[in-house]
Design a protein around this nucleic acid. Structure first.
Length: 639
RNA sequence: GCUGGUGUAGCUCAGUGGCAGAGCAGCGCACUCGUAAUGCGCAGGCCGUCGGUUCAAGUCCGACCACCAGCUCCA
């Protein structure tokens, strides 16, 4: 008598299948489209191979390339094909790890000689053979001992190391395709023929287990898709992203530059300064409104101060030093110690707390040469810093206030998408466990109260305290830390800060470090990429370009230009002897929001023909109506 | 800092041992024009830097510098 098992589908439907049925078997009863597209299956919440036998009561959900888990299975199988190809061409290569990543996959190899671009082509060719052969992929399970023996026999030392790190009783799974077997939890697609379209993109060094003390392995990056058209689309998107790159746009729009003469020390051009100044004045206005007072502290301060603050012990690798009158001075890498001196200049009362001291502080940090990246990662930058000194019972409200401020900036004013991380105590830290615990919990609680989703970033806090980080995305999807809130019980201790309480006694304040933009440089880079250079009108270096059609219209055009200038609009007159098409093209390329074309008709009717960079021809308007319109957009910071 | 790649005109790029090139931008002249590039002309180079090989180096070799991708690190 054949036993039956019950299978439940995502739509709630149930069906019976004979015991031992697999998802692949079930799939045969489903639509043809799904049969073709299913890559794996989620059974009772766990993703497994299509070939895995189903349990008695199975809620199944087939995974395709449209599901994140489906994509991961697909890319993971792609990585195995890469490893197989490499082992065929370079039998002495040792395998490390090869996971799926957001837009593709990679595999790390230990090889005697780094891969060349020509090697990559050969590997790509070999992978094509493997795909063409459509080798069935099967799962093997064994004990840790068996697995260790097998991989040791193949001299796969990294695999052995991974196995040794697993609890001894773990059942080890491997996946085999043709002559190639890899240690892997899976799941995988049924055969190598599924990986129809793929491309190896680059090779780079990567440390084993991400630790720079370990050996550097060779990592090959690739991407793969079930259809060639999707691959082509992806490659096209990468090209498009390059057009949004802030380094390219920074030069094209004449915003900023970096030169060999100052690696990592960016130059701001007149147009870049307009964006910067607009951001700063908006920032000042908003901070005044929220009870901050602005200060400015020196860039160079005595070495002793940095010993007291703990920077000498924990941060000196990143600092620049100098000598003045035979005495040791440091260029500030952070603004906090200077700000402490300002707090300490007088005795503060509990009535004054919280004291919020803000500073657009220029800091210099020695970053490793290999990490410099346009304006995103530089060696000198301006932090929109603030240090808040408060009583313990005020901490939570202060944190909430900062979160509110960051959300207002990011979401409402700029329309950014961002994610939040909670960074905990790093290896190199000051202070004891208990104080870190207290500080970390305070931050966590604020996030919970606020209902913000966050991920925990273990060991990534500052040396003086844990932090909440706000990350923004660049055009290629890489994320950059911008805003941060850091809770610090230690620095006030080091500097013996106090306030006089209601009881007339001295009490220790708590200090919060925070930035909203993070650094003006990085923020402008993110802004540039986010808007692809087409800044909102309030930030646009040139808001309007007036374009007379022929010489005889220049007088009226100048009149219109003057009228707008008086209304505080950043306007340029393009009176060059060029065709309208030419001038419009150039204004478009420069992403100028508004172009005002004036010819015979406009002169006669005292109007301007308005063209918007995205909206096209908006028709005629009087200069007055246009000015009201653009001033409204500027005032409301319309995105 | 590490691994790989790349440095030629302001920008994008040709030039694989034998006279340094093109397009765009710039400048000049003509055209006076209606919503994304008018035509003609002229200029513009320490071929990243330093050293080596060679009769001869943009080209081959070495070191360094900068940039690009990634790793590690970070606002």
């Amino acid at each position: 008598m054949l036993r039956l098992i019950s299978v439940t589908f995502p739509d709630g439907g149930k069906r019976q299948f004979p015991e031992g049925a697999t998802a692949a078997g079930v799939l045969k009863e489903m639509g043809r489209r799904l049969q073709k597209e299913a890559l794996g299956v989620r059974v009772n919440g766990k993703t497994v191979d299509l070939a895995a036998p189903l349990p008695e009561d199975a809620a199944v959900e087939f995974l395709t390339f449209d599901d994140e888990d489906g994509r991961d299975i697909f890319r993971h199988s792609s990585a195995h094909i890469l490893a197989q190809a490499v082992k065929r061409l370079f039998p002495e290569a040792r395998l490390a790890i090869g996971p799926p990543i957001t837009d593709g996959f990679y595999y790390d190899f230990d090889v005697a000689r780094p891969f060349t671009p020509e090697d990559l082509e050969r590997i790509q060719g070999e992978m094509e053979q493997i795909v063409k052969a459509a080798l069935p992929i099967s799962r093997l399970e064994m004990s840790g001992d068996e697995a260790r023996t097998m991989f040791a026999a193949q001299d796969e030392t990294y695999k052995v190391e991974i196995i040794d790190d697993l609890p001894p009783e773990t059942v080890i799974s491997c996946y085999r395709q043709g002559e190639f077997t890899d240690l892997c939890v899976g799941p995988h697609v049924p055969d190598t023929g599924y990986i129809r379209a793929f491309k190896l993109l680059s090779v780079a060094g990567a440390y084993w287990r991400g630790d720079e003390r370990n050996k550097m392995l060779q990592r090959i990056y690739g991407t793969s898709f079930p259809k060639k058209s999707l691959l082509d689309e992806h490659l096209y998107r990468l090209e498009e992203a390059k057009r949004r790159d802030h380094r390219r746009l920074g030069a094209e729009l004449d915003l900023f530059s970096v030169h060999e003469e100052g690696p990592g020390f960016p130059f701001f051009h007149p147009k870049g300064m307009i964006v910067r100044n607009e951001l700063e004045s908006f920032w000042r206005e908003e901070h005044r409104r929220r009870g901050y007072q602005e200060i400015r502290t020196p860039v160079v301060l005595r070495g002793e101060l940095w010993e007291r603050s703990g920077h000498w012990d924990h941060y000196k690798e990143n600092m620049y030093f100098t000598t003045i009158d035979d005495q040791n001075f440091a260029i500030k890498p952070m603004n906090c110690p200077g700000c402490m001196l300002v707090y300490q200049r007088r005795v503060n009362s509990y009535r004054e707390l919280p004291i919020r001291l803000a500073e657009m502080g220029l800091v210099h940090r020695h970053e490793l040469s290999g990490v410099l990246h346009g304006m995103m990662r530089v060696r000198c930058f301006t932090q929109d810093d603030a240090h808040i000194f408060c009583r313990r019972d005020q901490v939570k409200d202060e944190i909430l206030g900062i979160i509110d401020l960051v959300e207002y900036f990011y979401r409402e004013v700029f329309g950014f998408d961002y994610h939040v991380e909670l960074s905990t105590k790093p290896e190199k830290a000051m202070g004891d466990e208990a104080i870190w615990e207290l500080a970390t919990e305070a931050l966590r609680e604020a996030l919970e109260v606020r209902g913000l989703a966050y991920k925990v970033n273990e060991g990534d806090g500052a040396f003086y305290g844990p932090k909440i980080d706000f990350h923004l995305r660049d055009s290629l999807g890489r994320t950059w830390q911008c805003g941060t809130i850091q809770l610090d019980f230690l620095m006030p201790e080091k500097f013996d800060l106090f306030y006089i309480g209601e009881d007339g006694r001295r009490h220790r304040p708590v200090m919060l470090h925070r930035v909203v933009f993070g650094s003006i440089e990085r923020f402008i880079a993110i802004l540039t990429e986010h808007f692809a250079g087409a800044f909102p009108v309030w930030l646009a270096p040139v808001q309007v370009r007036v374009i007379p059609i022929a010489d005889r219209h220049a007088g009226y055009a100048a009149e219109v230009t003057g009228f707008l200038k008086e209304g505080n609009v950043r306007v340029e007159l393009d009176a060059r002897n060029e065709k309208v098409n030419y001038k419009i093209r150039e204004a478009q390329v420069q992403k100028v929001p508004y172009m005002l074309v004036v010819g015979d008709k406009e002169v006669a009717e005292r109007t301007v023909a308005v063209r918007h960079r995205a909206g096209g021809d908006l028709g005629p308007m009087t200069p007055g109506v246009f000015r009201d319109r653009i001033q409204g957009e500027i005032k409301n910071k319309l995105i």
